[in-house]
């Protein structure tokens, strides 16, 4: 039985320790939730991440709500959400009050530069391992690359890539299963 405080502590630790933004947090949560604790399966993780990416707002905030809800319902979602958000809030307020000059030191910038390069490797690894099971057909690989290209055009909201490519893939899937497409669409 996973307790509410276990959920809160797990997400809080990941939130407090992970440099490199939301996607880096997703990589670390993947390690914590799947490999280390076995709380969530590979499939559910991908599914929840897909939903979290589809919605607006911080991806890892959405993800904490979905995965927390899966673990322990509404209290689980609340614990995961607070665990993911509070470390950011606390550390930013503390920095704003006390530590601002620290960040202008060259050594801090050097630390960050090395850490960012490491995070780039971490993100590439996560994207690689996570995307493998999500994509099973050649047409899906093409769709993913097209979505990435559209999303990388400056000043274009990534939601266009999401809607456009999802609709195309949905059309293709419906065509490939004509019986399902005809009978079950509302």
């Amino acid at each position: 039985m996973i307790t509410i405080s276990q959920i809160f502590i797990t997400y809080f630790r990941v939130g407090a320790l992970t440099l490199g933004g939301g996607l880096a947090m997703i990589s670390v949560l993947r390690h914590e939730l799947i490999a280390k604790r076995g709380w969530i399966g590979e499939d559910d993780f991908s599914h929840e991440l897909a939903m979290a990416t589809t919605l607006p707002g911080a991806m890892v905030v959405n993800f904490s709500l979905f995965s927390g809800y899966r673990l322990r319902g509404v209290p689980g979602a609340a614990a995961a959400f607070l665990g993911a958000v509070l470390p950011s809030f606390i550390s930013i307020v503390l920095i704003a009050i006390f530590l601002f000059p620290f960040f202008t030191r060259p050594l801090a910038a050097a630390f960050l530069r090395g850490a960012s390069a490491t995070v780039a490797g971490l993100l590439a690894h996560t994207a690689f391992t996570m995307c493998k099971p999500m994509i099973t057909r050649a047409s899906h690989i093409t769709a993913a690359i097209i979505a990435a290209l559209i999303a990388m055009i400056p000043n274009v909201n990534p939601i266009f890539a999401l809607i456009l490519v999802s609709a195309a893939v949905y059309r293709m899937s419906a065509n490939q299963n004509p019986a399902r497409g005809r009978n079950d669409k509302p």
Binding site: A127, M134, I145, A148, A161, S166, S173
Partner: peptide, 16 residues
């Protein structure tokens, strides 16, 4: 089908 259809685009966004 819809849940599955979103996945390639999500992979694309993560890649981007």
């Amino acid at each position: 089908v819809l849940k599955k259809s979103v996945q390639p685009a999500v992979v694309g966004l993560i890649l981007a």
